Computed example of a mutant assay.
Amino acid sequence: MVFSHGLGGTKNAYSHLLGSISSHGVVVIAPDHRDGSAPLSLVRATPGSTPRPVEYRSISHKPTSEVEEARDGQLQIRLWELDLIHEALLKIDRGEPLMNTLAEKSPETMGDLAMFSSTLDVQAPGRISWSGHSFGAATVVQLVKSVFYTSSKDAPSSYQPLFEPSTSSQIAHQITPASSVMLLDLWTMPLLSKSTRWLNTLPLPCYAPDGPGGRNVIAVLSEAFFKWGSNLNQLKRIISEDPSLDKPVVKNHPAPYVFYPATSAHLSQSDFGILFPWLTRKAFKAEDPARTLRLNTRAILEVMRRNGVEVADTSAIDMEDASGHDGVPGGQIGQDWRILQTDGSVAGWVALDLGSRKHTEEAANDETAETADPMEAVVQGEVSKTTSS
C-alpha cells in the first residue's frame, strides 16, 4: 500500500493507522511529500547537491485561479513522487540497489531493503493499493485517473494533465480497474480546478466494463467531514459510476463502501487523537480515538481481503467479538465481514448510501462554506458545536 499524507501531515503523522495495517502483513510506503504541504521536509544531499529544506507553503483555500494553479502545482509534485516511489518498489523487488538512501549511509541498515528482494507483490497489475488522507486522498484519486485515462482521445483542449505517463510505462501497467483505492476524509476541492476538471467527470478505473466496481473502493469520513455537506456531495459524485451526473448513481456495478465513525474528527485518522485525546475530546467532541483508528484499519483490511489480497486475520479483540471467533455466514466473503455490513451491526460505524438524499440532508451544515479548507471547515463546524453545547 502506498499512503499519501494530508495538509500539515508527514509520513510520521499516521504511524498508528499504518503500523496497524502493516502488522497484518502489508508493506506500507508513506512518503513525505515535498510540495510544501508538510510542516517541513528535507531534500537529501546527493553527490552533486547539498541538502535543502522544503518549508510549508501557506496557500489560500478559496478557489481562485491563483489558488487552483498553486494546488495543481502541489498535485503535480505529489504525482511525480508517487511514480518515483512505484519505480523504487519495482527495483527493491528485483534486488536492484537504490541510490541516496539512509541504508547506504548506515552500516546498521545496509541489508534492510535487500530483505524485500523477490518478496513484494508489486509486479502483477493492480496489486498495489493506493490510499491517502484529505489532500492525500485527493492525490491518489488524481493519480489513478491520470494514469488510467492517459491515452484517452476524448479530452477537451482545456484539459491540462498534471501527470501523463506513457501507456507502456510501468505505472500504467500497475494501475488497472483492479487497483484498490482507500480514501480517508477525501478533500475534493483540489480535484475541481478548471485545467483538470474534465478528469473529475470520469469514473474511477474500477468502473471500467471489466472492473469490479466499487468493491475495491472504500471512503471513510470523519463525522466532521460527513457534516461538511458540499464536500460530501462531491465525494459521492467522485466515487460514483458517473461523476458527470449531479446525482450519484451506481447501477451496473457493486457500490463502493462509505462509512463514518460517530464522534470522530478530521484529525482522528492521524496520530493526533491518540497523542492528544483530551484536546480532541474537548475541542472537537471526538471520543475514543483508538477505536476510531481500529475501525478504519478493520475496514481497509477487509476490503483488501475481498479483493484477493492476502492479509492476516483481524484479532477477536479488535473485532470486539467476545466469543473469540467471527463465524462467516453463507454468501459472505472475508474474515471480518461485519465491518462492511450496512445494518449498523458495528456500534458507532455509520454506513452511507451513495444514492440517498437522506444523509446529505442530515449533513447540511450552514456554517461550513463550500469553498472552505478542510481544517477551517472542521474547526468552524466543531468549535461552534462545542461552544453552543
Rank of each mutant, 00 (worst) to 15 (best):
S4W: 02
G9S: 10
G19E: 12
S20D: 13
S22Q: 05
V28T: 05
G36Q: 15
A38C: 11
L40R: 06
P51Q: 11
P53R: 08
K62H: 04
G73I: 11
Q74M: 15
L75Q: 11
Q76S: 10
Q76V: 05
L82Y: 02
K91G: 00
M99A: 13
N100R: 00
T101R: 01
L120I: 07
S134R: 02
S134D: 09
K153H: 04
K153G: 14
P165Y: 05
A178Y: 01
S180V: 11
P190T: 12
S195E: 14
T196Y: 01
T196I: 08
P203W: 08
G214Y: 05
L221I: 04
S222M: 04
S222T: 07
W228C: 05
G229D: 15
G229W: 06
L232R: 03
K236C: 13
H253V: 08
H253S: 15
P256C: 08
F259T: 11
P261K: 06
A262E: 14
S268A: 15
D271E: 08
F272P: 03
L275E: 14
F276C: 11
L279W: 03
K282H: 07
P289D: 09
L295G: 10
V303H: 10
M304G: 12
V311T: 15
V311M: 09
S323G: 01
V328P: 05
Q332M: 14
Q335D: 14
D336V: 05
L352I: 13
E362R: 07
A364Y: 07
T368V: 09
A372S: 15
E382W: 02
